[in-house]
Amino acid sequence: MKFKTFLIVGILFFNLLFSQENLGSWNILNMNVKISSKWNVFAESQVRSLSFYDEFHYYEIKSGVTYKISKDFSATSGFGSYNTFSEGGNFNDPIKNKEIRTWLQVNLKNPLRYLTLEHRYRAEQRFTSDGFKNRFRYRIGATIPINNIKIEPKTFYTMVWNELFFTNKEPFFERNRLFIGCGYEVNKNLAIQTGYIYQFDYKINDETGRDFLNIALLYNLDLTKKEEKEFTPTTSD
């Protein structure tokens, strides 16, 4: 019964999604490697377009390391390259913004009976074409398993999160990013998720676009040979 409800909601959701004008694509490939009980390393690539799999204007490649302070509290440091091209074609020159970015981040999870809440706090150091910039981000999200009590192999789940972007210079507020979607954990190493991203920009010109279809492939590799009791799929962005 839960799966039928999930399927109906999914059909209605995608009908709403594809009724959007100027729907872009937001594609993510994420790999996370657990190297010990405390340490993880990750790598992620993204490609985005302003039209539905056309007018590709942005790509990023990043990696980092996460240290697990306690069961539900972790810290991350990352580094990446972020590139925004001119609109009107596929990776059109001249490039609008070429950026190297580092960041420090903490994650706090609140596992509840039927869902997991996650708070993410990030401070970014951005070396852009227009000079150095600071940025601060806060994201709150919820992951809800559909056909199991927890997320495990063969589990469908829904996910929603909202993220705010700030700077240390006026007007301070830069962006709001909302995600609503669903996913499926294929096995203990692989999850696939898709959904809708709405992005509102306020006086920002390093990226354009408002409505996106998001597709993410999430791969997890455990080198410790100790299976996690629960996998909470998430991207590094």
Score class of each variant (00 low, 15 high):
4 K>W: 13
5 T>C: 12
10 G>S: 15
12 L>N: 07
13 F>V: 00
15 N>I: 14
16 L>G: 11
18 F>Y: 07
19 S>M: 00
23 L>A: 02
23 L>T: 00
29 L>V: 12
31 M>T: 14
35 I>C: 09
39 W>F: 04
42 F>S: 00
44 E>D: 00
44 E>Q: 09
48 R>M: 10
50 L>N: 15
53 Y>K: 07
56 F>Q: 11
61 I>P: 07
65 V>N: 05
68 K>N: 14
68 K>E: 13
77 S>C: 01
81 S>A: 07
82 Y>C: 07
83 N>Q: 05
85 F>Y: 11
86 S>H: 06
86 S>P: 07
88 G>L: 02
90 N>W: 05
91 F>Y: 06
94 P>E: 02
95 I>H: 10
100 I>Y: 09
103 W>P: 13
105 Q>K: 10
106 V>M: 15
108 L>V: 12
109 K>F: 07
110 N>M: 03
111 P>L: 04
112 L>T: 12
114 Y>D: 15
116 T>N: 06
122 R>N: 06
123 A>N: 05
124 E>L: 03
129 S>K: 12
131 G>P: 13
135 R>W: 01
144 I>C: 06
145 P>R: 05
147 N>K: 08
147 N>D: 07
150 K>R: 09
153 P>Q: 03
154 K>M: 00
164 L>T: 10
166 F>G: 09
169 K>Q: 07
169 K>G: 00
171 P>L: 11
173 F>N: 11
173 F>T: 15
177 R>Y: 06
177 R>S: 11
178 L>Y: 08
181 G>C: 01
185 E>V: 12
192 I>Q: 03
192 I>G: 06
201 D>H: 03
202 Y>N: 12
205 N>S: 15
206 D>R: 11
207 E>V: 12
209 G>K: 05
210 R>G: 07
214 N>S: 15
215 I>C: 15
220 N>T: 15
221 L>Y: 05
222 D>N: 08
227 E>Q: 13
227 E>P: 05
228 E>P: 10
234 T>Y: 12
235 T>A: 15
